[in-house]
Each structure stands twice: as C-alpha cells, then as structure tokens.
Design a protein around this nucleic acid. Sequence first.
DNA 1: CAGAGCTCCTGAATGC
DNA 2: TGCATTCAGGAGCTCT
Length: 268
Amino acid sequence: MPELPEIENICRDMNKILLNKLILYTTIRCNKFKKYVSKEIKNIKNKKILDIKRIAKYIIIKIKSGYIVIHLGMSGSLFLCSKNEKISKHDHVDLIINNFILRYNDPRKFGLFLWSKNIYKEKFFLRLGIDPLNKKFNLYYLFNNIKKKKIKIKDFIMNNKFIVGIGNIYSNEILFKSKILPYKISMNINLYECNKLLCSIKYILNKAIKYNGTTIKNFININKKIGNFQKFLKVYKKENKKCINCNFLIKKIIQKGRSTFFCKNCQK
DNA sequence: CAGAGCTCCTGAATGC
DNA sequence: TGCATTCAGGAGCTCT
C-alpha cells in the first residue's frame, strides 16, 4: 500500500531514469477500467518526458501537451521491463520508451491512470490539503485546522483535505510517536500535543523515505527495490504484542472501517 | 453542511 | 485437502 514516502521514492527514481526520454507509444490492456484509465492515454505518441513529480500520492508525468496522472491505489505498482517481458494478469498500461517499457500493474484496480490537460484545474487537485513535507505545513496551519474539526484525530490526519499522503500504516505510527490516542477528538488536542503531532508526521515520513518505504504485500518500487521501513513499525499489525515503551499489549480497534493499532498506556 | 459508513477490487489468510 | 468466507485499504460517494 504505497503511501507518501513510497511515492516520493518512486518519483525520485523515475526522474533519474526517465527524464527527457521519449514515450514512443502506449498500450492499454484493460477494457473495463471505468473511470480509472483515460482513453486519451492511447493518443500519446513521441512525447518527451519533461518532468516527474509527486502531488500528494499522485505521480505526475509532464509532457508537452499535458500530464499523465498516476495513482497506485493500494495495490498498484510501476516497474521497468524489457519489451519481451511476459505480460502478467494485471498489467494494465505500458508506456513504451525506447528499448524498455514502464509498466503499470494493479490487481485491485484502486488506482488511476489518467490524462489531464491541466492538473491544476482538476477538482481532485483543488481539494487537496497541504503536503506534510512542505514548509507551509507548520504548527499554525495544523492547529488551526485541528481546532475546527470534531472528528477523531486519526481520521483527521488521514483526510486529504487537511494533510495529503498519510495512509493507515503511517497514521498509526505517527499517533504512537505523538502519544495521542487515535480516537481523540481533534478539537480537544492542545497546542503542545499538536506540536508533537507535527514533529512526528515529519519525522516518520522522512524516516520512511530514507528507508525506502514500507514493503507489505504488493508494493514494489520502480527498480523492484524493496523498502525497509517495516522494520521500524512499532504498532501497525502488532496486535497483542508488547509495546516497546511500556510492555502493555498493543490494542487493535476498527475505526472508520480501518484497522487501528495503539498502546492504551502510552497514548493519551 | 458535517461526519459516519459504504463501495470499488482481488489475492492472501483463515475457517470448517 | 478443498471449498467458502473474511480481511485489507485510498478516496470518492451516499446516507443521515
């Protein structure tokens, strides 16, 4: 399940390898992909890759006439392969680049492979909150928004309207590090806790980027390198294991339909 | 409007 | 062993 750190690393790798390369043509294999793959992707021919960047969890490939927008959902992956590489079951899109292929695979079809003339006018971009690695993501911004809401803090940090890119794994880890219970109501968070939350978000995400993300199940990055951050997970999927700080058993609850892990002793 | 909950999907894990 | 059921989750959508 790629989250912000994984996407950040994928974009960095893609930039190293794909910048200024020519997309000769594309192949789309899924027919029943509904809104998830734009038909316009088929029309891309002989276009140079001008830039690759990340906005929230979207991978944006800029070419002369517009943008390719890729979201990996929870099971999507992008990888480079040769032209003779066998096509697997869920390989939905190929970008043919000189003598190799950038291939998009997504078994669960939660991802997106879209075309946009101008991403900055798309409604899903206009709705996005501030990137947690941006300097504008500061205590003032976080505290102001937290105070406005009456939702559980875990739901707050996973909501793209306020903070982009934080999924279930990192939200659990961030709240553990912040010593805040996941079901604490956001408006009850004080300035001190909010500051801890801010620092924890930046710390966890940067550490995950450094260790190349968390590899659980399907995630493979562009060079099929494997992430190492799972070694550092302290609560996620640690139900009934001892808390590293206090030896209490880690609890699991379901919050907004998502598995939520925490230490009832450490987190207040 | 806000917030809770449902939904898309498939493969892995679990249950009997 | 083998089939059936459950679970996982990003983010948009639907309900209340």
